[in-house]
Design a protein around this nucleic acid. Structure first.
Lengths: 252, 252
DNA sequence: CATAAACCTTTACGCAACGTTAAGGTCAAG
DNA sequence: CTTGACCTTAACGTTGCGTAAAGGTTTATG
């Protein structure tokens, strides 16, 4: 039995355009072309098309199908396992999105205006924006664009709980700085606690922490008046104290 | 604070190209264009972009976002519910695909060669193909292309279990035809059972059943020698008997 | 103050998998 | 011999940008 495009299309449930496209990309070539230029498909092509459609229904890309159908069974199985992993990821993401949508709807039914729902995403952006405005240039020069972008990406990935925890930790650090400063000793227990918390705080945004980077940042705090101004709001001379505490912490 | 494209891009985490694209499609226009043709964005645009990104993370299309952000809260909630329904469908389809992939892998680990796994899909195609070959033209002329396509689509949607049940029912009909024929009475209980089974069998492929169509088909069985030949393989004169039984069944 | 570096602009192709005209040959039926 | 059904290639549209290319503007640096 031989078929022209639309005949094959009818029995296989795809469109003629699809068959021409498969011919074009080399996925399924007709058995021959007749004297009028018509595509003629035979039994072999019908069988091959069946296999193609089998994988297509499984959401496999044509590019992948192209490879799969010329592989032995063993590799086909591996390909399917691989594909399954991809599908799993896809579903995980879908689940997360659905959860967010549900939460958003729920909060709206609880009377929270939409603006407030959208605001959290905005809060994180605000944080990034302020970081950029205040320190962006120095940090980018010192550590490179990639590091900064990675940090921003990490911040964006934070959940609301993470975000809250981070800002709370920030406040805690300011309080601890005040108390530790009173001891007058950057090696004191309180001061070392402070340094430890400071490290924890950095981990929220740093993608890879190193002692050198931490030390470098501490030095920059002292060198840059904007950082100095910030940490000195807790207590005058706080920035230098913080740096000294960090240096001792890193050496221990 | 005012921003050029790439500045806004940096603080918002999207690319400059994205912002230009949003401008192009009218999703987010800059506050103004300066004398050099640069896009300048203000606080208002930053806020709007935040909202846009909020919805984008939820997998809402830009076209839908465009509508949503100029709607009041009430409509936004409706839009989200609508969107949630779409996501649910998407996940259901994903689950089904994953199940099929899992089953296929399992059967391969059970030693079933891939070809056989792919064969089932092929079996259905074969059925459709044969239907087309044998009766396609008449049926298409009689009932129109749409009806036939709908029927084929329904066949393709069958599960393996459905398919098996249908072919078994087909055999049962042939057997029942033999037995009922022995009664010599198309109104007999066996013959009426036959007609009932025949209707059940049709329902596997018919998208909307009607008495008229069933009667018409019965007449066609008798008029077309290929159908006659088929049903007469069960018993000579079986086709006419089947028609009579169906006619009585439909009148009762 | 000249020039390089950084940043801006528009234009336009590429991606996946076809759907959809459009313009024009081919073939079977009346 | 003419419909009408069916075939062909060519080419644009879809979604959301990425990625040059070619060229003007602003800022930094020697």
């Amino acid at each position: 039995m031989e078929y022209t495009v639309n005949k094959l299309a009818r029995i296989s449930g795809v469109s003629g355009r699809t068959l021409r496209y498969y011919d074009q990309i080399g996925l399924l070539k007709p058995a021959r072309i007749n004297s009028s230029g018509y595509r003629i498909y035979g039994q072999e092509e019908v069988d091959l098309l069946q296999q193609i459609l089998f994988y297509r229904e499984l959401d496999v890309s044509l590019e992948d199908i192209m490879e799969i159908i010329q592989q032995p069974d063993f590799n086909r199985k591996e390909a399917l396992k691989n594909h399954h992993a991809k599908l799993k990821q896809k579903r995980a993401r879908l689940d997360q999105i659905m959860a967010t949508v549900e939460k958003t709807i729920a909060s709206m039914e609880g009377g929270v205006p939409m603006q407030d729902n959208e605001k959290f995403a905005g809060l994180k952006e605000k944080l990034i924006e302020e970081n950029e405005k205040k320190y962006g240039k120095e940090i980018r020069e010192k550590y490179g664009n990639d590091i900064v972008e990675a940090s921003n990406t990490k911040l964006r990935g934070m959940t609301q709980a993470d975000y809250q925890a981070m800002t709370e930790l920030g406040e805690e650090i300011m309080n601890l700085l005040k108390e530790a400063y009173k001891t007058g000793d950057p090696a004191s227990e309180k001061a070392q606690q402070l340094a430890e918390k400071h490290k924890q705080w950095l981990l929220y945004s740093w993608t890879n922490y190193s002692k050198e980077a931490h030390a470098g940042l501490a030095e920059m705090y002292v060198a840059d008046e904007r950082f100095t101004a910030y940490y000195d709001t807790a207590i005058k001379g706080g920035t230098k104290f913080l740096r000294d505490a960090i240096m001792i912490y890193l050496d221990s």
